[in-house]
Design a protein around this nucleic acid. Structure first.
Lengths: 231, 231
DNA sequence: TCTACAATTATTGTTAACAATGTTTGAACA
DNA sequence: TGTTCAAACATTGTTAACAATAATTGTAGA
């Protein structure tokens, strides 16, 4: 059962994934000691992982208080989606440059999975797959920097939707993703860009950005539940 | 003389600046102990700063070997400039959205400084100001995410030019910057985008990306010199 | 009964000592 | 004389103990 010593990168990845897939909602306190128990490592290791997440903006660190999953503000929400439009347009351009015809099958498969999750009403899986679609696109684009950037933005989007879209868990619809892929398959990259832009604008529109921003902050022991069985 | 305890963020900033302004060239070894002496803090603090820089891609960390200023590859160089084109186009769109007329004076002043540095042949200052122009633009755009992203990209660009443009320190010419600002002043954002794109393509063209990538790696005590008097 | 102050407790931040790993230098052998 | 192996050194990686700060709770006074 000994897990051969988790490296800080693995810890970082696992916490990141838990946040990105919304098992660790905004406001959740990330107590160092508790994380030590969960991962079976000592505090400095945890500390380094949390530092990285703080640097990414996913975690907010208050001196002498501790680390919390960031609760995005309205301005931040708007900026995240604006930046995503800029970046994801670039992703499509990168796909155009390198020719994307070869890897379309993977995208089709992914969308099929999304439809399946939607049909089953598996919320957690829907959230995961919605983000993964955009990441998959970025990886196919073969631009490491764009992929890195988008990775951050997608995870922040998850926090944003968690705060500003509390009820409707609809997220990205598979149909809108399909429209983008269809345009790519047709080699019509301008249409693909337009579809992507529309998709992101729609996602932003679904948010309740006029709202007060209630700042919900659960503090229960979601930590163990979220991080223990994160696939 | 006591410097009131440098926080890890300050250390990060100072090392970052030294790399971005090319006082710490690619391949430079960043020995923890030496950095401790320079900043007068203990190792864990240095460690955290180096971790952040590693996460940014500015520093490469080899296990049990230490940290080095990253030496970018040809592929990385191309990707950096491609990504910059995507992002900086976004910056101009953001300027368009919020109306950029109010802060043009700052840009004009900046360009004047660039011309001055160029006339004096002050290479270090030219490098600093070239990067700062693009950052200034991003800050005026009022998109924290774009600014953050561009910050990383600009510093990586510095590394790229250090490796692939060894002789000609020309960097960005003030005239090309002026062209962008002129378009912004005229409210012609499409032209501004075109000018920015051309500017970045020109910068990439000046690189010798066909070359072998010699991987120069000075190991002398540039550390003290670079970090002690970094303004 | 409510408020303010103080003491305790819990948590983070820091430092120092220790262990493990990789590198370099020297010597011995081919 | 060149090459290989071994030992010593230097540097990073880890752990554990300690100090400082902030929050909370309880008590006393109004």
């Amino acid at each position: 059962m000994k897990e051969a010593k988790l490296t800080e990168k693995q810890i970082y990845e696992r916490i990141w994934k838990s946040i990105a897939e919304r098992r660790l909602p905004p406001g959740t306190r990330l107590k160092e000691e508790r994380l030590c128990e969960i991962f079976g490592v000592s505090r400095p290791r945890i500390r380094r992982a949390l530092d990285q997440l703080t640097h990414d903006g996913l975690v907010s660190h208050i001196p002498n208080r501790g680390a919390f999953v960031t609760t995005p503000s309205v301005d931040e929400a708007r900026d995240v989606f604006f930046t995503r439009r800029v970046v994801e347009r670039g992703v499509i351009e990168a796909l155009q440059k390198r020719g994307a015809q070869d890897k379309l099958a993977a995208l089709e498969t992914h969308i099929a999975e999304e439809r399946e999750a939607l049909a089953e009403g598996d919320t957690a899986r829907i959230i995961r797959l919605s983000g993964a679609f955009h990441m998959l696109l970025a990886e196919l684009a073969a631009s490491p920097h764009l992929a890195d950037i988008l990775r951050d933005l997608v995870s922040k989007s998850t926090l944003v939707t968690a705060v500003f879209q509390p009820k409707c868990d609809a997220q990205c619809g598979p149909d809108e993703h399909a429209a983008i892929v269809a345009a790519l398959a047709a080699g019509d990259f301008d249409t693909a860009k337009t579809a992507m832009d529309a998709h992101l604008i729609e996602a932003e529109r679904l948010l309740e950005l006029e709202a007060s921003g209630d700042g919900t902050g659960p503090q229960d022991d979601v930590l163990g539940a979220a991080l223990s069985k994160e696939l």
